[in-house]
Simulated assay, not measured.
Amino acid sequence: MKQLDISGNTLEYVRLVSAHPRPDAPPMVFLHEGLGSISMWRDFPQQVADATGCEAIVYSRYGYGRSTALRSVPRDVRYMHDEALRDLPLILDALQVSEPFLFGHSDGGSISLIHAGGAGRPVAGTIVLAPHVFVEDVALENIAIAGAAFENPETRLRERLGRHHKDVDGAFQGWHRTWLSPAFRSWNIENYLPTIQGPVLAIQGEDDEYATMEQLERIAAGAPDVDLVKLADCRHSPHKDQPGAVIEATASFVARILDARD
Rank of each mutant, 00 (worst) to 15 (best):
D107K: 10
A251Y: 12
Q204G: 00
M1V: 04
A148F: 02
F253E: 06
L129E: 15
A223E: 13
P224C: 00
C54F: 04
H81L: 13
D227E: 15
T212H: 13
G104D: 15
L95R: 13
S110V: 09
S7D: 15
F172Q: 11
L258M: 04
L129I: 04
Q3N: 13
P45V: 05
D107G: 02
G53V: 01
G244M: 00
L70E: 13
L161E: 09
Y59V: 00
Q47P: 02
P26A: 07
K230L: 13
L113V: 06
S60K: 08
F172I: 03
P100D: 09
E154M: 08
A19K: 14
W187I: 00
R78V: 01
A146P: 10
M213G: 15
L216W: 10
L180N: 02
E248G: 06
F30S: 11
S110L: 08
R185V: 02
G108N: 12
W179N: 04
V29E: 13
A171G: 06
G162C: 05
A139T: 10
Y13I: 00
D167G: 07
P27C: 06
K2C: 04
S237F: 09
Q3E: 15
S7Y: 03
I6P: 13
D241G: 03
E83W: 10
G162I: 06
H164R: 01
V128I: 07
A249Y: 09
G36C: 07
D233Y: 00
H81M: 09
F103D: 11
H115W: 04
V226I: 02
A51Q: 13
A148H: 14
D169I: 00
V17C: 00
N152R: 06
P74A: 07
V168W: 08
D137W: 05
G244S: 03
G36L: 11
I38H: 06
L35I: 14
Y64L: 11
F150H: 03
P26H: 07
Q204I: 02
L216R: 09
G118F: 10
W41V: 02
G65K: 11
A148I: 01
A221P: 04
G147F: 08
H115F: 14
Q204Y: 02
S67C: 11
T195Y: 00
H239G: 00
T178I: 12
D137C: 03
G125C: 06
T126K: 03
A232N: 03
D207G: 06
A220S: 13
T178H: 03
D24Y: 03
T52Q: 09
